[in-house]
């Protein structure tokens, strides 16, 4: 599956990067393709392109602050959760999302 994600957190240093890495690691283990945009203290890193967003099967926001430029996602179903949840068990979260998708 193609997944795009945005991570951000209160100070934009620790959790946003840990959550991004946890998602990348989980996607790799599950054989999915993922692009993660980090909205952190250094600005927006690895900004998602419109094409990547359009093509994505799954959109995840692992954020506890506002997402910047959220209108890019107007046409998409967005799954929103906290960065901490992702850090704790990204693999289970991704598996569950995929299982739900295949049911619908």
């Amino acid at each position: 599956m193609k997944i795009v994600a945005i991570t951000s957190c209160a100070t934009g240093i620790a959790h946003s990067y840990m959550a991004a890495e946890a998602l990348r690691k989980a996607a790799k283990e599950l054989g999915d393709e993922i692009r993660v945009e980090v909205q952190g203290a250094m600005g927006i890193e690895n900004r998602l392109t419109d094409e990547q967003i359009v093509e994505a099967d799954i959109v995840i926001w692992a954020v506890d602050v506002n997402v910047r430029d959220k209108d890019r996602f107007d046409e998409k179903n967005v799954i929103q959760l906290g960065p901490n949840e992702v850090i704790r068990d990204a693999k289970k979260i991704l598996s569950d999302i995929k299982a739900n998708l295949s049911k619908s």
């Binding site: 240093i13 620790a14 840990m18 890495e21 850090i87």
Partner: peptide, 13 residues
């Protein structure tokens, strides 16, 4: 800042 964020990333492994 890059160094701090790299360290946060490593903790996942």
């Amino acid at each position: 800042m890059r160094v701090l964020s790299q360290l946060a990333r490593l903790l996942v492994y």
